[in-house]
Structures are given as C-alpha cells and as structure tokens.
Amino acid sequence: MRRLFVLPTSRAGWGLLAAFICLVMAGIWPVIGLLNRAVLVFGLPLMIVWSYGVIFACVGVMLIGNRIVERDDHE
C-alpha cells in the first residue's frame, strides 16, 4: 500500500493532467519572467493580457475536461 498512488488511468486523463500542469506553469516563473516587459498589447499591459489569457485558458481546459469525464461516465 505504501507505493500506491492515484494517477490518471487513460491517455485522455494524462492529457488533462498535462494541460493542468501547463496552465499552472503559464502563470508562474519562469514563464512570467519571459513576459515581464513594459509593453502594451490591445491597449493593456502585457502582464494583464497574459493573466487573463491564462484565466480563460483555464475555462477552455475545464470545458474539454467536462467532455472527457462525461464521455467516460464517471465522477
């Protein structure tokens, strides 16, 4: 029992885990360091645009996740 752990059991599950990790990585260093410039994009600071990009990407990934979970018919 000591080495048992909960991990994804399907390719879609692993893909979803990878997407979650990518989302978190996108919002922290070192990615944030690459975007740390005083420039405007669409009239807003790059850091704000990127932050909202990450925020809406979260919605997109969860929408895909819903399809996967509901297709597999388990909670």
Binding site: W29, P30, I32, G33, N36, R37, A38, V39, L40, F42, G43, L44, P45, L46, M47
Partner: peptide, 28 residues
C-alpha cells in the same frame, strides 16, 4: 478606452507595468 490610461502610465511610470513593481517588493 482603457489604453489611454496605460499609455500614460507606460510613458511616465513604466515600473508599474512589470515585476517587481513600483516598490520593488513583488519578486518572481
């Protein structure tokens, strides 16, 4: 247009648009 606000900040106070921020205390 919010861009007008940020253009002025960019021109006069660019340090507010990046980390570690204007006070230098918000590191990566």
């Amino acid at each position: 247009d919010m861009a007008d606000v940020f253009k002025r900040i960019q021109a006069e106070h660019g340090e507010f648009l990046t980390l570690p921020g204007a006070r230098g205390d918000m590191s990566f």
